[in-house]
């Protein structure tokens, strides 16, 4: 829908064209008060590289947003990776709060990273548009591992403290691993791995005994029996993999999930915020997105902007306690 002239030709025609665009948008059913937004394509910043799980999620979501066409303009995914998500988050939050730059970020850069790193954004001053997906953290062992349950693992860890190797990595894995040790009075040998793929490889190759990861990272191997999930850190067993018991069912009060949210800089005009909430809320709840998320091994979240913001605050507070307790 490229209506505006690209060059400088016909400057006088610009107001007329804008009016025409407004009319077209109105005809598309957009309320008149929102005719001003968006005036161009919206950039959705993803702070991880193309090909990562969150990138695949973003592209699936954006495709639905564009197909539904409720925004009136297209959304484009822009990958700004680096700094454990800090680079893309900074780029999102330092943009002009006019709704043309938004971001789909994991919660880590908002809830955990500011605890350990100096970041150049204020994680509290943001506009939250919608939660997109959640992924509870799992403890996984190789398919031929002697550990069949959390109890087996705890018994073994007590028998030889500090020797069972556990692969973790980013804070969203390191913190639940630590919390598990506190809750069960055990100690593991922590080895940092660079993401779920690396952890899966190390587990299958018997180079590490336990791995902390998300369901999305190990689905194929779990289904094929190359890996076995000991426990999932969700409140209830999840629909995607109902056979995996929760930590709670195994008497360890560990709940921890990572989740992805659509955010924008603080101070969005009310009508822009409303429009984005509506557009993304409807795409997240669409059956098509549910299908895409299921394939990727992610749980679709129903939380709207307000609920998601409250959840971020809660996790930030919990992380503050855990990281301080270290």
């Amino acid at each position: 829908m490229s209506v505006l002239p690209a060059g400088g030709r016909g400057r006088a025609a610009l107001p007329a064209l804008l009016a025409a665009v407004a009319l077209v948008l109105a005809a598309c059913g957009a309320p008149a008060s929102q005719a001003g937004y968006p005036t161009r394509n919206v950039q959705l910043i993803v702070p991880y590289p193309a090909g990562s799980a969150i990138d695949a999620t973003s592209r699936a979501l954006v495709e639905i947003v564009n197909a539904e066409g409720k925004l009136g303009r297209r959304v484009q995914v822009v990958n700004r990776e680096g700094g454990a998500g800090a680079v893309g988050t900074t780029a999102t939050l330092s943009a002009k709060p006019d709704g043309h730059t938004i971001g789909l970020v994991p919660d880590g850069p908002l809830t955990l990273l500011p605890r350990t790193e100096k970041v150049s954004y204020d994680p509290a001053s943001i506009s939250v548009i919608s939660e997109v997906t959640t992924s509870p953290v799992l403890f996984v062992v190789p398919g031929d591992s002697p550990y069949k349950s959390v109890a087996d693992l705890v018994t073994a860890a007590k028998a030889r403290p500090g020797t069972i190797t556990i692969a973790e990595g980013p804070l969203n894995y390191a913190i639940p691993a630590q919390k598990f040790e506190q809750l069960t009075g055990t100690r593991f040998k922590h080895v940092k791995f660079d993401g779920d793929q690396a952890t899966v490889t190390a587990l299958i190759g018997d180079n590490v005994e336990v791995g902390v990861m998300q369901l999305a990272g190990g689905m194929a191997q779990l289904k094929a029996g190359k890996l076995r999930a000991l426990a999932i850190a969700s409140a209830e067993p999840i629909e995607l993999a109902p056979e995996i018991k929760t930590f709670k069912q195994q008497d360890v009060a560990l709940e921890w999930e990572a989740y992805n949210v659509v955010i924008a800089p603080k101070g969005l005009p009310a009508d822009v915020q409303r429009k984005l909430n509506e557009v993304f809320g409807s795409a997240v709840k669409s059956p098509k997105f549910a299908e895409a998320a299921r394939k990727l091994g992610l749980v679709v979240s129903g939380a709207d902007g307000e609920a998601a913001k409250a959840k971020l605050a809660e996790k930030t507070a919990e992380a503050a306690n855990l990281i301080a307790a270290k």
Binding site: P49, G51, D55, A60, A220, Q221, K223, K226, K295
Partner: peptide, 19 residues
């Protein structure tokens, strides 16, 4: 290869040991 994987995942195909 991560991109090829993403393309497969988006099509609902999870390459794995039984692919």
């Amino acid at each position: 290869m991560a991109l090829v994987l993403a393309a497969l995942l988006l099509n609902g195909i999870v390459p794995g040991p039984t692919f």
